[in-house]
């Protein structure tokens, strides 16, 4: 366990050093993140100009969901995406051999090869959105609500990571999935609104199949102090299931790997 913590530290340090080489990029990234945050906030601003609540959410409440979306998008693009795009490349070139030869768990190694520290900006943007939203609401989140939302952030990260591992496991079977990663990011865009705006089939899919509701809407509800305990239980169970299931699929998939070289 300590060895893995140390390994994680080394990998993080390497990524940070790599990113520090391009300081100008960091400033540009900051600007880009702010502009992209606007794409999530502007539509809400427009639709709430004429009415006070949509699908049971007021403007500041919907902003809390946007805050969680921004935070998780940062996690996805900063910590999950870069490494796993790398795996796809390694499987195609056959260089995954070098990873498999190392005396540590392969899933751990491939998941931590690359980070994009500049995406931490999203955490700042999200905090700004939270502060603004709760000032408009008039009172801050309760301690219990905050604790529950932090717990849900952990389960959301596990869900996101599990979904990613499942996507990447597909690479051992079909090889060409590099633009599947874009598809995944595009689907994640649906998480920017409270899940109650979705109806019918979309609602079921986004709760149980691709659990976007569990990632952004539930933490926001917890923060607002109106999450039903059963939803919390569903999130915990869902995260546990995804963690176990994705691990099992990964282990099976890696067995399919045949080196591409020589």
């Amino acid at each position: 366990m300590r060895r893995y913590a140390y390994l994680l530290y080394i990998q993080l340090k390497a990524s940070t050093l790599l990113a520090m080489q391009y300081r100008g990029d960091f400033v540009v990234d900051l600007l880009i993140e702010l502009v992209w945050a606007a794409t999530a906030v502007v539509p809400l601003f427009v639709v709430f100009a004429g009415r006070s609540s949509i699908a049971g959410w007021t403007y500041p409440e919907a902003l809390v969901v946007t805050g969680w979306f921004t935070l998780l998008q940062g996690l996805l693009e900063g910590a999950i995406n870069p490494s796993l795009v790398n795996v796809v490349e390694q499987v195609r070139k056959g260089t995954l051999d070098f990873v498999l030869l190392k005396p540590a768990d392969a899933q751990f190694l491939v998941s931590t090869t690359r980070f994009q520290p500049s995406k931490a900006i999203n955490a700042i943007t999200a905090t700004l959105i939270f502060v603004y939203a709760f000032r408009r609401i008039g009172h801050g989140p309760t301690a219990g609500g905050l604790a529950a939302s932090l717990l849900l952030m952990v389960t959301a990260s596990i869900l996101l990571y599990g979904l990613w591992i499942l996507t990447v496991s597909a690479v051992f079977y079909v090889v060409r999935v590099d633009n599947l990663t874009f598809l995944f990011t595009a689907i994640f865009d649906a998480a920017r609104w409270p899940s109650s705006v979705f109806r019918g089939v979309a609602k079921i899919v986004f709760t149980f199949v691709i659990p976007l509701a569990l990632m952004t809407t539930y933490p926001a509800e917890a923060m607002l102090g109106r999450l039903h305990p059963s939803s919390l239980a569903l999130s915990l169970g869902g995260a546990l299931f995804f963690a176990v299931f994705s691990r099992a699929v990964w282990v099976r998939a890696i067995g399919k790997y045949t080196s591409a070289s020589s």
Partner: peptide
């Protein structure tokens, strides 16, 4: 896959449909 990844109009449609339920905009 690129075409399927153009989900944004549909994501926006979901939001605006919910809006339209409370009367036209």
């Amino acid at each position: 896959v690129w075409v399927l990844a153009t989900t944004m109009p549909l994501v926006m449609l979901a939001l605006f449909s919910a809006v339209a339920e409370g009367g036209p905009l």
